[in-house]
């Protein structure tokens, strides 16, 4: 699916909530429905640093698109990573690299974007973009 459409859908889904509790409950739900990461990828190497909770992120190249799988031991963090995967997974490296993260602000989760937040959302985005850059180089070769 087109990355803009996915973002617009997310913004739309979150717009029906009046307060933070409903937004968080939805995020928790997204976290719970995140498909399991294959256990062989839940390694220390795949842990994203900068999170108070543990986040594992794995990437693979399939048909020139990057497929991300992830997990976290904290459910809110897992919800955040689920949102990122919905947006960025199955996209081309080029699309991933040029897409900004304004949608996070628009779904009312701006507070998580601060680089000093202990949830490491910024680190997750950085890691996603780094994978994209690596695969772009690989395809280019």
């Amino acid at each position: 699916m087109n990355i803009e459409t996915i973002q617009a859908d997310l913004i739309d889904e979150f717009s029906i909530f009046d307060d933070w509790m409903e937004r968080y409950e939805y995020m928790i739900e997204l976290g719970k429905s995140l498909p399991m990461i294959a256990s062989e990828f839940k390694t220390d190497d795949n842990i994203i640093k900068g999170c108070q909770s543990k986040v594992w992120l794995h990437a693979e190249l399939e048909n020139d698109t990057v497929v991300f799988t992830a997990d976290s031991d904290a459910i809110i963090t897992k919800g955040i990573v689920a949102i990122l995967i919905r947006v960025f997974s199955n996209q081309s490296p080029e699309t991933i690299l040029k897409t900004n993260t304004d949608f996070i602000d628009e779904i009312g989760l701006k507070e998580h974007l601060s680089p000093t937040r202990a949830n490491g959302l910024v680190s997750m985005i950085k890691k996603i973009k780094m994978y994209a850059l690596a695969y772009q180089t690989q395809i280019g070769l």
């Binding site: 968080y24 108070q52 909770s53």
Partner: peptide
């Protein structure tokens, strides 16, 4: 998870430490 707990109670105005 302690992190989740801290995040939710912060929304309720309560400052606790996690980690």
């Amino acid at each position: 998870h302690a992190y989740d707990l801290g995040t939710i109670v912060d929304k309720l105005g309560i400052a606790i430490r996690t980690g």
